[in-house]
């Protein structure tokens, strides 16, 4: 693989994904409105739900709005990752996936480039949300906005790789709606996005154990700690490992000699 060729391909895939995302104005608007509805309506009702507990990385008592913002950022990345895997299935059904897969570059590179492109496209929206969240008095330290960037990229890659792996196992577009419901909602609700682990443990130790084992929780915690200028090594390690495992599944699923892709009749 010549590096210059590979970089042209990466740039081309990035440009295409960016154009498509900007062109889908409804999706663009939904990506920003969805977390604002949660923050502006849902979170207000739970303002004091955390009581008088101090939860790291916060150094004082916080309102629920402050707690929920990293979870909502995670939700944005999760939705974006799943919608991109939906667009992979759509591309396959519409035929444009063939253009990608017949390029003279290794499939792991093509899939990786697509994954990176998808992750990068959502970042401006995430930052817009973080800026708007200041109106609800969610004001992390100024350097936190920079420190959170690697956490956003790693979390986005992990959730995107998960979606990519899922898309390789789904045969038809119609099946995807069901998978979205069975994946997005459990992943989001059974996590530390909405409630801290200790609060879940009070209500249901089983649910707390599920939330701890859920990689999405670790993505949220990585973002939460980074936003307040702290590094959470456990969350980082789990996100990195999960990214590698999910991406490995995706590459296997799209391998011409393996996976479901190989057993599929021509469409």
């Amino acid at each position: 693989m010549k590096m210059r060729y590979a970089m042209h391909a990466l740039a081309g895939i990035m440009r295409r994904e960016m154009l498509r995302f900007i062109g889908q104005q409804g999706r663009f608007a939904a990506a920003i409105v969805r977390p604002l509805v949660w923050l502006g309506i849902f979170a207000v009702g739970f303002r004091s739900v955390l009581g008088l507990s101090i939860i790291p990385p916060y150094e004082t008592y916080i309102l629920y709005e402050v707690y929920i913002v990293p979870g909502l950022v995670g939700m944005m990345l999760l939705f974006h990752g799943m919608q991109n895997s939906l667009s992979m299935v759509y591309d396959r059904e519409m035929g444009s996936m063939r253009v990608l897969l017949t390029a003279p570059l290794p499939r792991w590179w093509l899939l990786g480039a697509r994954l990176l492109a998808n992750t990068v496209t959502v970042l401006p929206i995430v930052y817009l949300f973080l800026l708007l969240a200041r109106f609800w008095d969610v004001r992390p330290p100024a350097f936190g906005y920079g420190a959170v960037l690697p956490a956003l990229i790693l979390s986005g890659l992990m959730l995107g790789a998960f979606g990519l792996a899922l898309s390789s196992f789904i045969r038809q577009l119609e099946n995807f709606a069901g998978v979205m419901n069975f994946v997005i909602f459990p992943m989001f609700f059974a996590s530390t996005a909405l409630y801290p682990l200790w609060r879940l443990d009070e209500v249901s130790p089983t649910l707390a154990a599920i939330a701890w084992a859920n990689p999405f929780s670790h993505a949220v915690e990585l973002i939460r700690f980074a936003l307040y200028l702290q590094f959470e090594p456990m969350a980082f390690a789990i996100c990195a490992l999960a990214s590698a495992v999910f991406f490995g599944f995706a590459v296997w699923g799209y391998d011409p000699g393996q996976g479901f892709w190989a057993r599929r009749a021509p469409e």
């Binding site: 060729y5 590979a6 440009r15 390029a103």
Partner: peptide, 15 residues
């Protein structure tokens, strides 16, 4: 996408 955007995308995949 426009015709030229489609062409540019294909070109990039071929280096």
């Amino acid at each position: 996408m426009s015709v030229e955007q489609n062409m540019a995308y294909h070109g990039s995949l071929h280096g």
